[in-house]
Simulated scan of single mutants.
Amino acid sequence: MNTKPQRAAPGVTAVTCVKNEGPFILEWLAHNRVLGVRDVLVYSNDCDDGTDVLLDALATQGWLTHLPNPAQGRNYQMEALRDAARQPVVARADWVWVADVDEFLNVHAGDHTIGALIEACGDPQAISVPFQFFANGGVVAFEDRPVTAQFDRCHDPDIWCGSLSIEVKTLVRGDFPLQYFGAHRPYFRNGTAGPSAWTDASGRPVPAAFRDAAEKGQLRSIPARGARRFATLNHYPLRSVESFLVKIARGDVNRAGRVFDADYWRDRNDGAWADRSILRYRDATRAAVAALRADPAVARAHAACVAAHRAQIAGLLSDPERAAFARHLQALPTISEAEAALAAELGFA
């Protein structure tokens, strides 16, 4: 007889910022609820595809809080995260998870929930999970079906874009000595000893230079090799060619002035590696999406977002220059020059 006491599921709040992400929100929310996320705080700004209407419909269910982005300038994400730290739904959380709608946490440990990841890492005050960028994989047309089922090719987990380090997103425990949340990691208060423990997704201490923000070039990246034993953050920044055109037209949801171009595409369109492990969540996520869409207002709002996305695609492709750019993206090599050079130098296959 197993007499081991059952660990209570942690109360996790996810925080994100969105602009015109309507077609993709339900899958992301459902996936996070399957992971064990209890509450979600969403900030939106300048939506014209119905994303805000969809979020308002979801907010009536009680577990999602939708707020207008409070940014007075153009640094949308950082101003929202400063506001988030003061929100009750964040203040009462056991853990806070800051991630974008194209980022899906993929837990390899235990029952594949956030609770299992925390336990596997030894219950530290922060866990930084490395990205894995998923390539376009030759998918041209937008489809209203799960992103995680459409794209299963990514870069070698130990090397990306000419670097042996990889960006992270960080799960933060409620008692972390927080100064403020960053998009990729928290920063602790000056004059404190810092967190008692901060690990990567293999339960290993993160490098001191990263933890202490001691070097500007190491603020959001850690060494990739061996860092994802218990979890990976699947990042789908490209999706289909058609949706990437919409992303270019929208601009960066998190900050003004960032350009999504052919270089951005090529850096992230490395399909050298196959990873289908996130499909372990497929059935549970599908059921969670169906439960969300059982609300007629949510179903209508989602359909309106999909229709708006398709209408924008049609409008963009009617422009000969944009149509030519779409064809150019499809013809680009699927590995960046910097990564190819480093792989050759290190003898990677």
Rank of each mutant, 00 (worst) to 15 (best):
2 N>C: 10
2 N>Y: 13
3 T>V: 15
6 Q>S: 12
9 A>I: 11
10 P>H: 07
10 P>Q: 08
11 G>N: 11
11 G>S: 11
12 V>G: 03
14 A>Y: 04
20 N>P: 03
21 E>D: 07
21 E>G: 03
23 P>K: 00
24 F>R: 02
25 I>V: 06
38 R>V: 12
41 L>I: 05
45 N>V: 02
46 D>N: 13
47 C>R: 03
50 G>S: 03
51 T>L: 00
51 T>I: 01
54 L>V: 10
61 Q>F: 05
66 H>I: 02
67 L>Q: 12
70 P>I: 15
71 A>H: 14
74 R>E: 15
74 R>F: 14
84 A>L: 07
87 Q>S: 09
89 V>W: 01
93 A>G: 08
95 W>A: 10
101 V>S: 03
101 V>P: 00
101 V>L: 09
102 D>R: 02
104 F>N: 00
107 V>K: 06
111 D>A: 06
112 H>Q: 09
114 I>F: 04
114 I>V: 10
115 G>Y: 04
119 E>N: 07
120 A>L: 06
126 A>C: 01
127 I>W: 00
134 F>T: 00
135 A>N: 04
136 N>G: 02
144 D>M: 07
147 V>Y: 00
148 T>W: 02
148 T>R: 07
151 F>L: 00
156 D>R: 11
158 D>R: 13
158 D>V: 13
159 I>N: 07
163 S>C: 14
183 A>L: 11
186 P>F: 08
187 Y>P: 03
188 F>N: 00
188 F>Q: 06
191 G>P: 10
200 D>H: 08
201 A>G: 03
201 A>T: 04
202 S>T: 08
205 P>E: 03
210 F>S: 04
212 D>N: 15
215 E>A: 06
218 Q>M: 14
221 S>R: 14
222 I>Y: 14
222 I>N: 10
223 P>R: 14
225 R>N: 11
233 L>D: 01
240 S>I: 06
242 E>A: 05
245 L>D: 06
246 V>L: 04
247 K>V: 05
256 A>P: 05
257 G>S: 13
265 W>Q: 00
268 R>Q: 13
269 N>V: 01
272 A>S: 15
276 R>H: 13
277 S>C: 05
283 D>M: 09
286 R>N: 12
287 A>M: 10
287 A>C: 06
289 V>N: 06
290 A>I: 02
295 D>C: 10
296 P>F: 07
297 A>D: 12
299 A>V: 01
301 A>F: 09
303 A>N: 12
309 H>Y: 10
314 A>I: 09
317 L>Y: 00
324 A>F: 10
330 Q>A: 14
334 T>E: 14
335 I>N: 03
336 S>H: 08
338 A>G: 15
